[in-house]
Every structure is written in structure tokens, then in C-alpha cells.
Amino acid sequence: MSAVRCVDVCKTYRQGDEDIHALDHVSIEIANGGFVCLSAPSGGGKTTLLNAIGGLDVPDSGEIYIDEQRIDNLNKGELAALRLQKIGFVFQAFNLIPVLSARENVEFVMQVQGVAADKRRSLAMSILDEVGLGGLEERRPAEMSGGQQQRVAVARAIVSRPALVLADEPTANLDSKTSDELMELFTELNTHHRTTFIIATHDRRVMSYAKRLIKMLDGRIVDDIAQA
């Protein structure tokens, strides 16, 4: 069974007088437990594809399936529920709620999911431990390094055990050592929990961790390589 399937997806933006084909008849299938890097130069369409898969952006045409459930025709509320339950997101840095501690940031999403308070707390503590933040649970984002903040974001993304995690340039604001640590964490989670990862990046170090590398240019897939 595939975790993600895109069939002939198109998306066009207008910029000034020009039409930008951000997604130009894109079709891909990503299996459960996949570890995929999407690489493309800026404007290559990787963020648009990631957003379309995550239900943040609706394509002009084509079909998108998550767990064989079609999502491109869902309404806003259904998409929100889908993201909440099935998809974890990790963005570039600075994406935590600044007034909440690491633990509270993780708990907040669970609270919205309706997880009971005591369960929420123990889950948050164990997941933070798992991502290597044991002992830093009560720190606010401003009191943590960029790498630590990204780990909180990862913890938040995977705490509800989503089948799919989408990461958009997760290492953009990190140094190389921290980037490596983050990618090792992803790899470990992928191996342990069979969580599917799709990571949009143009960082070569990140690509080297991927089992499969999809290259895009001008909204089209130009290369699809399986890696060891």
C-alpha cells in the first residue's frame, strides 16, 4: 500500500504577467515506510508539492491520495482534521509557540486531538526523551538552540504517531553538525516506527540520508533515484 500517491497534479501561479507552472503534471507514488528527499532549486516546485500533499494547498487539477484516501477534494475542515491525525509537519526554524515550554508545545497539538491530560503529559515526556531533549522539557523556545527547537518541532510532529511526516527545509537554519543529528533522528524514527518521511531540501548532506531521491525542475520530476 502506498502512503502517498499523486496522479497528474498541476498547479499554476500567476506572477505579474507570467504564469508559473509550479507543478506540471506530477505523478509519484511513495510507499509506506519510505524515506524520500525532494530536491529542487528554489522555485522548482518542491514546497508546492509538499503543501499539496499536506493538504495546505489545493492543486488546480490531478488527484492526491494519502493512505489511499483522496484528499484534493476535501474541504478546509476535513483537511485540518486529516493533518491533525495523519500528518506531521516540520518547517524551517522558528515555528514553535514562543510562550509555551517544549513540553507544552508538544502537548498543545495532542490537546486539540482530544488526548486526556495525564496521557498527554507522559507521552510528551517520553517523546521529548526520544528526540534527545530529556531534561529540557520546561524550557521555552527562546531558551533553546536552533537544533533543540527543531527537535521539539519533530517531537510535536511525531507524537501522535502519524503515518507521514512532511519536512520543508528542516535544516535550513542549522549548522552541519546539528543537521546531521536531526537527519539521524529522522532515520531512526523511520526505521523504528516505519514512519514515512518526505523531506524537501536542497542540502546535499540531507539528500545523502534518503532511501529515494526525487529531483524536480520547473515543476516536473526530472529524476527519481533509489539510494542505498
Binding site: L56, G77, A80, A81, R83, Q85, V109
Partner: peptide
């Protein structure tokens, strides 16, 4: 901040 929360699936009503 709200955009990120919404991306995580938190409804605007909340």
C-alpha cells in the same frame, strides 16, 4: 504563528 498551527491541523475556530 497561527499559520503554523493551522498547518498542524488546528482549526481556525479554535
Amino acid at each position: 504563528e497561527f499559520g503554523i498551527l493551522m498547518a498542524l491541523g488546528i482549526a481556525p475556530g479554535r
